[in-house]
Design a protein around this nucleic acid. Structure first.
Lengths: 130, 130
DNA sequence: CCGTATCCGATAGGATACTG
DNA sequence: CAGTATCCTATCGGATACGG
């Protein structure tokens, strides 16, 4: 989903863009907000890896979804795919420069999650029984 | 989706947790990775707002989804809901302390998006025609 | 070993109509 | 104005089987 037209954006609205930031973030989410992308990025953050190694490390991901996730990242230039035409085939995946640059902001959010996890869980329990 | 069992986690794996970070991030994504949550957080980042004001500001969100999104954020303690029993009713939403604390990391990711948007688009075009 | 195609169930989310 | 309920669709993602 393109997140294209935030608000009804009619011509007579002079306001240049009341929340460009939200849109930018929406686009990042469109990229990383699926079930496996950030797992893959995380798994590759320490170096290149082969398909099945990724699959084992991440765990729980289906063959199909891992392929799709890798293709998506490759298409966006966050990932480089190198196939060695040996038998059996060997394919390595590694983050590009841009891919690596995503790790820092990701870790900021991850830290937030770790810091607030218990508070969130507590809030949920209270809300659910209250 | 609980993101619960990252990797098959068999007992004999001594490794305490090879990617706790990814899991933490996965949980954040489960919370904010939907279509509207971060729009709401962004909209509320500058102060409290009423239901229909939010709806107009965000734009494109259905009545139903805005309600669900607000409930979810409230349940997790990121949002406070205050209903004034007047006629007609008036309900205000505002971020809690914890809700505000999410904004900084969000902005980091948003900045990443703005910085890399054109590179990603270029990469996509190349990938698609190549 | 790596990748693709097909099938199918689950769910997210929009439209709409109705209540206090 | 704010919220709920119902319906319906598109998409996501898992299982499986097959090809290179």
């Amino acid at each position: 989903m393109p997140q294209a037209s935030l608000q009804g954006r009619v011509p007579e609205m002079a306001d240049p863009d009341p929340h460009a930031e939200c849109r930018a973030f929406g686009q990042v989410l469109d990229r990383i907000g699926d079930k496996w992308t950030i797992m893959v990025v995380g798994a590759l953050s320490h170096g290149p890896m082969r398909f099945n190694a990724l699959m084992r490390l991440i765990g729980g991901v289906s063959h199909r979804m891992l392929t799709l996730t890798l293709r998506g990242l490759e298409r966006d230039g966050l990932l480089r795919r190198t196939a060695y035409p040996t038998i059996p085939p060997k394919v390595e995946y590694e983050l590009t420069e841009m891919g690596h640059s995503l790790i820092q902001p990701l870790e900021a959010l991850s830290a937030w999650g770790q810091q607030n996890r218990s508070a969130i869980e507590a809030s949920r329990r209270e809300y659910d029984q209250g």
